[in-house]
Amino acid sequence: MHKKGIVLMNLGSPDSTAVKDVRRYLNEFLMDERVIDIPKLLRFLLVRGIISPFRAPKSAKAYKSIWWEEGSPLIVLTQQLQAALQHAVTAPVTIAMRYGNPHPKKAYDELLAKVPELEEVIVVPLYPHYAMSSYETAVEYAKEIHAQENYAFKLTILPPYYKHESYLDALASSIQPYLNEEYDHILFSYHGVPERHIRKGDTTGCHCLKVDNCCEVDSPAHAQCYRHQCVTTTHLVAGMLGIPKEKYSFSFQSRLGQDEWLKPYTAKRLEEMPKEGIKKLLVACPAFVSDCLETLEEIAEEGKEEFIHAGGESFTMIPCLNVHPKWVEAIVDMVEEAV
């Protein structure tokens, strides 16, 4: 690892729970063409004129409900992961966010300050699965800043690791303790994306959402298919944990707008499950490696309320990998493979 550095790249967070900071964050996030993939003028009118003004106050309230004394949970947990990884490797480790702070340029400059003769930076996208609105936009942004600043060091990007043995082992290890309690079902809830994103990312142009059981039928499209990768992670981890097929399922959360998104929807399943006899539920969120608004508020608070209101008896959200020792080991393994 001589003359190398590591950047852990996560999604990002508002600087505070103030409405103005949340609005600024939402504007940057939703104006990303890989998040809302419509013409720029229409996107500007939609985001600045409709979504942000109405969503910012609501989102600010949601952030306040999960904000820690140290700051944003996602930022704090990423910093903790940075510290834990730094204990395990000799190369300097820093963090960057796709939206908000810290900016990738700051991360690159910090590494250069520590290693003036820096030759290579390994970027670790904290997204296990490939999606244009998460992994792809983070990677392309890291590359864009690298090119803009004309840095001399080489940039190496970790590929999606949704089925990497070390990642799966870490995920299974983080879930295992919760299987010791009595439960009826475990739901793997992933962040949702519009179905058009899946079709747009289909490198074959004729497979994703067009072939029966498309996620189970081998295709080159799977290299960039978010749904296939989520399904794969679910089945592999469930198999490692010995969870019977009838006791687990997957769904997709965080839908925005009226377009068709990946199904089944988490919110709908939480309402239906008690009527199906599922009264004691565990929920894991493998698309996120750090707990954030989408896990701490949308699942642990809103999701639990929906499930209990529908007749459920117990609801447990399993924390994300965060700083789990096996997760730190997994990153070390993947970085060593990359170099």
Rank of each mutant, 00 (worst) to 15 (best):
residue 51 I to D: 08
residue 120 E to A: 08
residue 29 F to K: 11
residue 104 P to I: 03
residue 296 L to K: 10
residue 30 L to Y: 11
residue 140 E to R: 15
residue 119 E to I: 04
residue 153 F to M: 12
residue 288 F to W: 02
residue 297 E to M: 04
residue 158 L to E: 08
residue 282 L to Y: 06
residue 36 I to E: 08
residue 72 S to D: 12
residue 105 K to I: 07
residue 95 I to S: 11
residue 244 P to R: 12
residue 178 Y to H: 15
residue 72 S to Q: 10
residue 95 I to A: 06
residue 23 R to C: 02
residue 63 Y to G: 07
residue 152 A to L: 12
residue 42 L to P: 04
residue 163 K to F: 01
residue 77 L to T: 03
residue 34 R to P: 01
residue 11 L to D: 01
residue 323 V to S: 15
residue 119 E to R: 14
residue 20 K to Q: 14
residue 219 S to P: 10
residue 57 P to L: 08
residue 11 L to E: 00
residue 183 Y to P: 02
residue 254 S to W: 04
residue 115 V to A: 10
residue 73 P to R: 10
residue 23 R to A: 15
residue 322 N to F: 09
residue 132 M to E: 11
residue 105 K to D: 10
residue 92 P to I: 07
residue 126 L to A: 07
residue 90 T to L: 03
residue 291 D to K: 06
residue 273 M to K: 09
residue 80 Q to I: 00
residue 70 E to Q: 14
residue 186 I to H: 04
residue 15 D to G: 15
residue 173 S to W: 01
residue 144 E to Y: 04
residue 184 D to L: 04
residue 258 Q to A: 14
residue 250 F to A: 01
residue 270 L to G: 05
residue 226 Y to L: 01
residue 162 Y to R: 02
residue 315 F to Y: 15
residue 116 P to I: 10
residue 268 K to W: 06
residue 221 A to M: 09
residue 114 K to T: 12
residue 255 R to Y: 07
residue 254 S to K: 05
residue 252 F to G: 10
residue 66 I to S: 01
residue 92 P to W: 08
residue 58 K to R: 13
residue 115 V to E: 13
residue 333 D to T: 13
residue 313 E to S: 13
residue 8 L to Y: 03
residue 211 V to I: 15
residue 93 V to H: 11
residue 301 E to Q: 14
residue 307 F to K: 05
residue 304 K to Q: 15
residue 191 H to R: 11
residue 109 D to N: 14
residue 29 F to M: 09
residue 271 E to W: 00
residue 25 Y to L: 08
residue 5 G to V: 03
residue 231 V to D: 07
residue 324 H to K: 14
residue 168 L to C: 07
residue 329 E to R: 09
residue 161 Y to K: 06
residue 189 S to N: 04
residue 284 A to Y: 00
residue 68 W to F: 10
residue 36 I to N: 08
residue 270 L to Q: 11
residue 236 L to I: 11
residue 119 E to P: 00
residue 222 H to S: 06
residue 263 K to G: 13
residue 271 E to R: 08
residue 301 E to A: 03
residue 273 M to E: 09
residue 189 S to T: 06
residue 170 A to K: 06
residue 150 N to K: 13
residue 299 I to F: 12
residue 286 P to I: 12
residue 313 E to W: 05
residue 170 A to N: 05
residue 71 G to Q: 08
residue 197 H to E: 07
residue 318 I to E: 02
residue 84 A to E: 15
residue 213 N to P: 02
residue 56 A to F: 05
residue 60 A to P: 01
residue 152 A to T: 13
residue 90 T to M: 02
residue 316 T to V: 14
residue 7 V to W: 00
residue 262 L to F: 02
residue 134 S to W: 00
residue 324 H to P: 13
residue 277 G to I: 13
residue 212 D to R: 05
residue 126 L to G: 05
residue 189 S to M: 03
residue 261 W to G: 12
residue 36 I to H: 07
residue 287 A to C: 07
residue 89 V to F: 03
residue 153 F to G: 09
